[in-house]
């Protein structure tokens, strides 16, 4: 298997810097992705996690100011073992929850993750999360860029 780097090395010397530049622009530098992304997040919140509970859901609004459809393909957070993309759906008289591969954000459009629909699931939550806390999340898009999100923990108890 001749890989890309071999081909760069064997390329005429004048072209090598150009190829390297191309390579660098494909792989986004860490930290730059967030600024480069046309997708932004607003109104991010997490359901409060009482002691003894290990799962919770995150809801937010994704907005895409760019001319191309983008999609969230994965994510992570320090407060839980796993962050997954999920969807609740009505199936006849039943509610079904299933993992999804991606959450598309249309060009010049937005998508809302909300109770009863698309959401992010946190599995293996490591500590109780109390209303008012802030949870840092990182979402990864299909173009490799990342969005750093701070989600507010909200109570599930009815307002007094």
């Amino acid at each position: 298997m001749t890989n890309f780097l071999d081909r760069i090395r064997s390329a005429p010397t004048g072209l090598a810097p150009l190829a390297l530049l191309a390579l660098l622009s494909i792989a986004p530098a860490p930290g730059l992705g967030a600024q480069a992304s046309a997708v932004s997040v607003t109104n991010a919140w997490v359901r409060e996690v009482p002691a003894g509970r290990k799962t919770t859901a995150v809801f937010l609004v994704l907005e895409n100011s760019g001319p191309t459809e983008r999609a969230v393909v994965s994510g992570s957070t320090v407060v839980a073992d796993t962050l997954e993309l999920h969807e609740m759906k009505r199936e006849g008289g039943m509610m079904a929850m299933s993992p999804v591969q991606r959450i598309a954000v249309p060009a010049k459009g937005s998508v809302e993750l909300r109770p009863g629909g698309l959401h992010l699931m946190l599995f293996g939550v490591r500590q109780p999360l109390a209303a008012g806390d802030t949870v840092p999340l990182r979402l990864v898009l299909d173009d490799g860029s990342r969005i750093e999100v701070r989600a507010e923990v909200r109570s599930m108890r009815p307002m007094p």
Partner: peptide
Amino acid sequence: YRIVPTPESAGRYAVTHTT
């Protein structure tokens, strides 16, 4: 209700159920 295996998820399975 119906148990739905979700091997790709840390949840392992989900339960579709009437509400």
